[in-house]
Design a protein around this nucleic acid. Structure first.
Lengths: 203, 203
DNA sequence: TCCCAATGTTGACACTGTCTATATTGGCGG
DNA sequence: CCGCCAATATAGACAGTGTCAACATTGGGA
């Protein structure tokens, strides 16, 4: 901060902060190399040393978004009482995160970041968030609340479900598609259906 | 086509065709007002009369994508034997569409189109696709294969599920998340879980 | 202390979307 | 059949973007 000289100190982190701020304020379209440089008070080409391309900058910002998501999921899981309610809390936390930070949520699945193999940090952050859900599945299996199939497949199913409903809620598609009630109710209903489908056959 | 004069005839449709071509070839990032004009062989500002803003052009292209999706769903539903397999076929057709036209699929949920209320044609096309799924739900209810709750909520649940898994498959996230098998198998598994969750309680 | 490698800056280029002013022309009333 | 007008397309300009190459600055180790 304050009265910086020629060398910034930790420009990389400062740029990512600026990117997060731009993201929150103006959506993903507002996140750019030059605007981030401007916010940071640095020349327009300075970011190039840390982010060779505009997409790589976006990826770095989105990676922080995934970290936040992972943290939100982990907190929900940890503050739950039993394995099933932990799994359930993770699902609700996913939807809650999307609603709380819609612009961040949308950034996570931005088309230009579709190929995550180009952005290792983004990929690992994404997987870290997923692993929280996967761990919750494994524990719910151990407690007999979830059918004992491959955890990866079950976690992918759960991820799909909560991601899909989050996308619909965040983009405000409910009313247009004939659902007039509280989005929270829908999230609960969707999760209930999911859990019913994941239940072990005849306990 | 061929030797056009000053007035094009149906520039609007030609531009959308160009947009679809650009989309298929280079992804959504390649779809722009100027590039579409270039492909169409028209001046860079000509599209402005039909598409006042770049986003509105994108919306028109995406609307065609939703129409295609709706058609694919409808065909799957219509060529099925009974109500339950029609519902199931619709789900598989959704995933198949996403895999067949990944760039089109990604365009449908592009962040800049998140607010569909700004783009009536896009909204109605999107709803048309959704209605195919909703009708399938209703029929499956009538045949006793699906719990009798509000169709809108159930259809939203189904949409969420198939959309989520499609997004994961299209962005090639399966292997990175520990699923090494055939994506088709996963799609079937996810649908099976969905149907299990949607089944009427004890028949 | 000196120097060099790491870090920022400056300037330029091609590209984009958007605006305003201008040119072209098909089709209508006379 | 003619002439004009409104619809349609063009031309030019401007601000903004990402990216590149040449240059300036400086901190920290030999």
């Amino acid at each position: 901060m304050a009265e910086r000289t020629y060398h910034h100190g930790n420009l990389r982190a400062a740029l990512i902060d600026a990117g997060l701020q731009l993201l929150e304020e103006g959506g993903i379209e507002a996140v750019g190399i030059r605007s981030a440089a401007r916010v940071t008070g640095v020349s327009h080409a300075a970011p190039a040393r840390y982010f060779p391309t505009a997409t790589s900058f976006l990826a770095a910002v989105a990676a922080v978004g995934y970290e936040r998501l992972a943290a939100a999921l982990a907190e929900a899981v940890n503050s739950a009482e039993d394995a099933l309610s932990a799994f359930r809390a993770a699902g609700l936390a996913y939807v809650a995160f999307a609603r709380r930070e819609p612009n961040t949520f949308r950034a996570l699945t931005h088309p230009s970041l579709a190929d995550k193999s180009q952005h290792p940090d983004l990929l690992s952050a994404s997987n870290r968030a997923f692993d929280v859900l996967r761990a919750a599945v494994v524990r719910a299996q151990a407690d007999g609340h979830v059918v004992s199939a491959a955890p990866a497949a079950l976690a992918l199913t759960a991820w799909s479900t909560v991601h899909g409903i989050s996308a619909l809620i965040v983009d405000d598609q409910l009313a247009a598609k004939g659902y007039a009630d509280d989005p929270d109710d829908l999230a609960e209903e969707v999760l209930a259906t999911l859990f019913l489908g994941l239940r072990p056959t005849e306990g």
